[in-house]
Structure formats: structure tokens, C-alpha cells
Nucleic acid binder design. Sequence first.
DNA 1: TCAAAAGTGTTAACCATACACCCATGC
DNA 2: GCATGGGTGTATGGTTAACACTTTTGA
Lengths: 229, 229
Amino acid sequence: MPYTYEHPHPAVTVDCVVFGYDDSDLKVLLIQRAAAPFKWKWALPGGFVRIDEGLEDAARRELREETGLTQLYLEQLYSFGEPKRDPRERVISVAYYALVALADHALRAASDADNVGWFPVTDPPPLAFDHESIVEVALRRLKGKVRYEPIGFELLTRKFTLSELQRLYETILEQALDKRNFRKKLLSMDLLVDTGEIQQDVAHRAARLYGFDEKRYRQLKRAGFNFEL
Amino acid sequence: MPYTYEHPHPAVTVDCVVFGYDDSDLKVLLIQRAAAPFKWKWALPGGFVRIDEGLEDAARRELREETGLTQLYLEQLYSFGEPKRDPRERVISVAYYALVALADHALRAASDADNVGWFPVTDPPPLAFDHESIVEVALRRLKGKVRYEPIGFELLTRKFTLSELQRLYETILEQALDKRNFRKKLLSMDLLVDTGEIQQDVAHRAARLYGFDEKRYRQLKRAGFNFEL
DNA sequence: TCAAAAGTGTTAACCATACACCCATGC
DNA sequence: GCATGGGTGTATGGTTAACACTTTTGA
């Protein structure tokens, strides 16, 4: 028992709400716990922050170790610290949320052989700890933020059609959008570049593929532009 | 040395960025540290989270103990966890920000006789730890949030004139607003109630005093209304 | 030739902006 | 009576919202 302190210290964890999108469905990434407490229950990927490790570093490390995901959009969400949220000891969890295009990122089996899987955000299984409320907060944040920051693109593959983009927004915001107005608005922002390519292997007229011009966005933003809707 | 753990645990603190507004000036509340590290330096009010205490509870307790402030608008801001941010040991700080009307809340001398004072947010003294960046994040959050949530009212006394409200927004947003348009917009939202009273002791025509109708806001919000600008 | 989704303009309503003068009060 | 801020309306331009049909392609 080598670590002693004059005052009691809580443990600190990170937990990640990873949103994935594929084919009109918003999903959340869960792992099945192989150890107590809540053994066999589904939970958010995450774990203890190492003593010399930054919070975001910890979140990225846990994601890599438990799910194989790297290089994703990651942002701090909120910190959860109800005294009784973990039955073992006082644990404060700094939650992050991440966005990822399902088609682009294959899951790797977790290093400790836990099950990993995608679940519909609207109807996830019962979760360990207070993870259900963490998912709820993350979803609220995503819904809010997607309207005034171009983070939706993080959920799509690098090349996408306008219809895919529209379906994504409709899914997240849970409201129908007008096709012509949506296209007008998005194209007028000057953030999408026509790749010149079109969809392959579709059973109808193939749509143009666009890309999100990150560099252009930063430029416009510096000049006072604000992404909206 | 009674508290021992199998793995090293960081310490967890809360720090509060309290914004105050009075007479066209946005201020931040600081206390002067009476103990090392950073002895005599100014810092955000805050302290260690007790082992059985919620995070927001800890923030409110520290504010009460160190500044005498109670009953204020308080919201979690962000968690700061750079490994070296505290020279003593690993400390993760969950930052909160609070809004308060200077005129309504007198400061009490801190229990441990630290100095307490209000400083202009634009030009604060050098701060201990990474508190300058915490203030910066809080200010950014305030500037963003004030546009789409009616939190500005928390910085004003319960009764206020439209000019005071406008000056508040101009101060926070750092931009001039048109008087007639501002009034039209705010009054049309149906969130302000005319108290029937007018300013006293002013050397010019006395302005009507309005109040913010919190209950009405919740009502409208439930019905899909969104406060903006 | 049918099914499925892509792509495309116009109009009307609404909202945001710009703008300047008279009023009430205290000194 | 003058200085100070309170209070008020309109016209214009721009933005958003509503709306339906033709095109392309593969099966």
C-alpha cells in the first residue's frame, strides 16, 4: 500500500461517449464490463487517469486501449462527481465525447477481451454507474453544438453527399429539413468542396461527393463568420 | 498519515470564476493567498473537494467560506488537469463560474483573513496556478452563453432599466447595440415585467424598472422558445 | 419502364438593421 | 434653460420558409 496522503483523495477517471453515425443511425459505443462492479453490464469506455497524464491524454489512451479508436474528434463534456456514483470509492469522472464516422473506423477487440459494440443512442441497454445520465448530457451537447459548429462532418466519411449530410442533421436534430433550402444554405457557406467524384454502386442517379474544407472554415471563422444550422 | 491507496490518487479542487457587474464594469472576484504556494498572489476562490461532498456543493461551500457569497447562479465550466498545474502534487480542478450583481451582494471578509476583491476582467493582476487561463475560458463561455440563454439578468439587480440591461450586454459582448432595436427585441420576448416603479435619485428623467420573469421564461422555453441575443 | 433519389428557382413573409428627434427631470 | 439620459416608429434590404417537378441511373 504505497500511496498515502494526509487527506483523503478521490479517484479520478475519464469516460468517453463516442458517437458514431452510419446509414441514418446515431450510435453510441459501449463496452461490456468484464470485472466487478457491474460485471457484464454495458458501460462507457474509460478508466483511471494516470498520475502524470493529462485528462484528454487519458481519454485518448483509454479509447485506444479499449476500442482501438484513434484520431477522432474529442472534446471535454462535463465532470460528474456525485459522492456515491461508484460503489467502491469516491470517483470523480471527467467525461469526454467523441465523434466518429462508423464506416471509417473499425473497432478492434478490446485488449482485455471485453465486448465492444455500437448501440442506438435512442435505445441503449441499461448502463453501469451513472453512465446513462452521462450519455444524456452528451446527447444534449451534441444537439446543441451541431447547430453552430461544423462538427457534424466528423460523423461522416471524408467524402459525402448532400443528402447524407442532410440525413445526419435530421437524425441528430430530430426534425425534418427542407432539401432545397438545406442545399442552398450549406453550399452558400462556401465550406464544401466538390470532389468531382460521384457515388458508386447505387441503384439510382449517383450524387456528387463533397468534402468539408477545414482550412477554409478556420479562415472564415477568423474573419468573423459563424457557422449556423 | 492515515489515507492510503493502492494506486496514486490526484487531489481534486474546485475553483470559481465569479463575475460581478456594476455600473458598466465586468469584474472578477479574487482572493489573495495567505499560504504557499503562490503566497500573496491573487487567485480564484476555491479549494479541495471533501471526500463526501458533491462538486457543486464544494464550490458553493468554498464561495461561502472565502467570500461570504451565497445564492448565486453557478454552473460548471470545465475541468483542468494538466499534470504540472500545481507544484505540490497532481491536482485536478473542476472549475465553476458564477454570476452575481455587485450591488446586491456585499463581500464578507474571508474566514481565514485573506484579502478579497473585485478586479476588472479585462485587466486582472497576475494570478496563481493556471487561473488566468481558467478566467479566460470562463469569459469565453460567458460571452457565448449570454447570447442564447438569459443569464445576463443574473448580473443585474432584481429590478433594472432597459438601458442598464443594454449596457450590460454591450460590456460583455464588447459591441455597441442599437437602442431602439434592443428595446424592441427584449420587450417583444415577453420576458420582462414592468414593475410599475421608476428609478429614484437620478439627475435626469427616471427610467422604468423592469424585472425578469423567470417563470414565464421556463414556460416559453418548454413551448419551444429560444432566447437569442 | 419503373423505382429511387438527385437536382433545381421563385415567391412571400418575416426579421434585422439603420436611423433622429422629442420628452421628462434635476440642477 | 440646459444637460442628461429616456423613450419612441418607419422604411428598406436581406434572410428564411414554403413549395413541386424534371433528371438520371440501375435494375
